[in-house]
Design a protein around this nucleic acid. Structure first.
Ligand SMILES: [Mn+2]
Ligand SMILES: [Mn+2]
Ligand SMILES: [Zn+2]
Ligand SMILES: [Zn+2]
Lengths: 138, 138
DNA sequence: CAAAAATAGCAACATTGTTGCAAATAATTG
DNA sequence: CAATTATTTGCAACAATGTTGCTATTTTTG
């Protein structure tokens, strides 16, 4: 039985063509994907609404996570840690490469500890770096 | 002569009603503003296009900076450091409060040093924390 | 104040995101 | 396996957001 089916099943999602194709795309892709990337890459005829809904449920289930952006083009990437329904644990840093334009999960770079003044309650921290990736910087 | 006019003049921007009103709004507001906040808050009849263009030039000049978001609703906030044309130096952390929904610049919380593997070139780092602000957490 | 330069508003359009509903598909049950 | 039930899909219609070219208006300059 395929890995893809397992992932969907384990997350109590029914196995549909759309979900398989989109998940496939994430598994085949290095770096993060924007909605538009999926619209283009995930085969031929997928309704945009289906993609929106699929991405939402994948995020909800902890299959993918959202990477914030400063230009209204949020990206999505596979969760590699043990994320589960409603509980993400992706404590890594992201890099947006200004050369190849890819957004990468740097799984080995852990989000640093930040000291906040007393009074604040911090739930989670997102770190997005802009720079040049290893590939492009040589 | 008003502070607002000075800021615009110093940045070689001609002083127009739109720019004055929008800059006024930033000066009067604690926390960051979304485009839609400005559309509502900045008086009555402003063409949306003018607001887009104003925000763009303010960012370009280093009068305001962009705060990334995970839900395609980027926010803008006044620069308090010495930012200038094409060179932002806002090395502070941002907080999105899940109670009051405000996005705050925590000027006193400096972006921590992050160690990247060799091979990467890092230009700047954005840190956005989700949590509860001092006001709401009491 | 007049001329030159910059900006604002308008229109038209493109892209992105949301919702309700009926048809199609997938899961479950006997 | 077939029938029933549950879930998902595509469609349509719409709302919100963002972009561009052009002209009229405003601002700056001299
Ligand atoms: Mn990631
Ligand atoms: Mn800030
Ligand atoms: Zn690169
Ligand atoms: Zn708050």
């Amino acid at each position: 039985m395929s890995n893809i089916q397992n992932i969907l099943r384990n997350n109590k999602l029914s196995v549909t063509e759309g979900r398989k194709k989109i998940l496939q795309l994430f598994l085949n892709t290095e770096g993060a994907l924007a909605h538009s990337d999926i619209e283009m890459g995930a085969g031929e005829n997928f309704d945009r609404v289906t993609i929106y809904r699929t991405l939402h449920s994948f995020v909800e289930k902890g299959i993918i996570h959202v990477i914030p952006s400063a230009d209204n083009s949020i990206k999505y990437a596979l969760c590699k840690d043990e994320c589960s329904e409603g509980h993400h644990h992706d404590h890594h840093v992201h890099l947006v490469c200004s050369v190849c334009q890819k957004t990468l999960c740097l799984d080995e770079v852990v989000v640093p500890v930040v000291n906040f003044p007393t009074g604040y309650y911090i739930e989670n921290i997102e770190v997005v770096a802009n720079g040049i990736c290893k590939q492009c910087n040589s």
